[in-house]
Design a protein around this nucleic acid. Structure first.
Length: 449
RNA sequence: GGUCCGGUGGCAGAGUGGCUAUGCAGAGGACUGCAAAUCCUUGGAUGUGGGUUCGAUUCCCGCCCGGACCUCCA
């Protein structure tokens, strides 16, 4: 059995991964707040954890992957106030967009996809539990978590209470006992979504929903908790505080894995810089497989710099892989990917190292090694590429290629007659239409640029 | 200001206390009517100054640079 090693944010080191129950790995990843199109940063996190889940499924008999949808949030409320569209419509549509975008990147849906609105009862119960244990208090319709009651608070993200205070950028509400206290529940005016609670009509704060949904779907302690690196503080710090105080003895998650940030052309992706790239937008430039592959070309913890040039390069690499597969008539995948490939992935999800193995397999396949082609297919499928045949990759599911075939036949005749001017004219005509011709020993084949 | 992460060849991007991946691009060649694809060959890197060591890109310290986070951004 290959040993997976993962960089654990909690300990800041790479550790052997051993699930509490080897027969059942439990993993939770923070999902999107549904108020707008998914951007490439969202996509990176989802692709990274999808790849981790694929690896875990390869090595463990059962994996339960939970990823939530945050459908209660002030950004959603703000969007509704702006556009006048009902909140329910915004969240339903955005959730549907998200599902479609992630499917286009070949991400497997989570086993369970809880929504905050579906767990209000669990959230209220958890808050009551925290109040009962003295870790939270009600004040002016709010319920706040009292950070002073948690000796461990700040430890996870490596912050002291003083540091937290020094950098605080918000005005401290008067009803807080401690400036670091955060909201578990807040009152909702009649025009905002609200649920009845012991503290009046209100809505949950952000962090509490994850604690509640993890407990409801997976239990007190899970194996892996994931998300983007920007969630380490405050979101994950607060989740840990809530869950561990509510359930003494629980660790919430034994291993914390965080995906690095994504930049665009060397700059932080932000709306003010105007370089915000949505998944939808990028899918117009390249196939979903190329986008996914690009996202995996950088090890997950590093900063990934997205650019159009990098996307084009990712596509060229896939072109070569598909050529290697096509040479062997789209072989069935080998029973299992090569050990070197799995070992690279198991080493803290070293996808660049794994991809280097893919290139080695493609080289061997190009030289005529059929077993390597089958291994290449198996390895690629494990990380979510090679979701189509080489023919589909190069030519698409075209039905009207009779015209192309006719032109190729005409060109072949011209070449036989040494009428190279005509032959080249036909090639140029097809090239203008995005069709590239390749003359090989087996005849002429075409592909889309 | 604080905490953390990182600085590798033209670009992207790994590993490693000694033998330095991989890809793209470039150069030369083979093949081709010409191309494309493929194959062969090839140049090219570890921010900076110290320290530890027989030996450091790899470990430690300073400096410079970049990035993330510091109450609701994945």
């Amino acid at each position: 059995m290959i040993q997976i090693k993962l960089h654990n944010t909690k300990t800041r080191r790479r550790e052997p991964f051993a699930p509490a129950d080897p027969a059942h790995v439990k993993l939770y990843v923070c999902g999107p707040t549904v108020y707008d199109r998914a951007h490439l940063g969202n996509a990176r996190t989802v692709v990274v954890f999808d790849t981790l889940v694929r690896l875990l499924r390869h090595l463990f008999p059962r994996v339960t992957y939970v990823r939530n949808i945050t459908d209660i949030d002030d950004k959603i409320n703000a969007r509704a106030a702006e556009t006048g569209e009902p909140i329910g419509e915004i969240t339903a549509r955005t959730t549907s967009w998200f599902h479609n975008d992630m499917a286009a990147l070949y991400c497997t849906p989570p086993d369970i996809e809880p929504r905050a609105t579906g767990h209000i009862g669990d959230i209220i119960a958890l808050i009551e539990r925290l109040i009962a244990r003295g870790h939270a208090y009600a004040a002016e319709g709010h319920v706040l978590f009292a950070v002073a009651t948690d000796a461990q608070y700040g430890k996870f993200s490596g912050r002291s209470p003083e540091e937290l205070l020094a950098g605080a950028r918000v005005d401290v509400a008067t009803y807080k006992r401690d400036p670091g206290d955060f909201v578990l529940w807040k009152p909702s005016p009649p025009d905002l979504p609200g649920w009845d609670s012991p503290w009046g009509s209100g809505r949950p704060g952000w962090h509490i929903e994850c604690s509640a949904m993890i407990h409801a779907t997976l239990g007190e302690t899970i194996d892996i908790h994931g998300g983007g690196a920007d969630l380490i503080f405050p979101h994950h710090e607060n989740e840990i505080a809530q869950s561990c105080c509510a359930f003494p003895g629980s660790e919430l998650a034994r291993v914390w894995v965080h995906a690095g940030m994504l930049q665009v052309n060397g700059q932080k992706m932000s709306k003010s810089l105007g370089n915000f790239r949505t998944v939808q937008d990028v899918l117009g430039e390249a196939p979903g497989e190329a986008v996914r592959f690009l996202l995996l070309k950088t090890q997950y913890r590093g900063v990934l710099d997205f650019s159009t040039a990098a996307l084009a390069e990712a596509k060229r690499e896939l072109d070569r892989f598909y050529r290697a597969l096509e040479k062997h008539a789209d072989p069935a995948p080998a029973a299992t990917p090569p050990a070197a490939f799995i070992e690279a992935l198991a080493d803290d999800l070293n996808t660049p190292g794994a991809i280097a193995e893919l290139h080695a397999l493609a080289d061997a396949a190009m030289q005529g090694n059929a077993a390597s082609a089958a291994s290449l297919r198996a390895a690629g499928e494990l990380i979510g590429i090679f979701n189509q045949t080489a023919g589909q990759w190069f030519r698409g599911d075209v039905a009207d290629d009779a015209r192309i075939d006719a032109l190729i036949a005409e060109r072949l005749a011209a070449r036989r007659n040494k009428d190279f001017a005509r032959a080249d004219a036909i090639r140029a005509e097809l090239a203008a239409a995005g069709i590239l011709l390749e003359d090989g020993p087996g005849g002429t084949i075409w592909r889309r640029a």
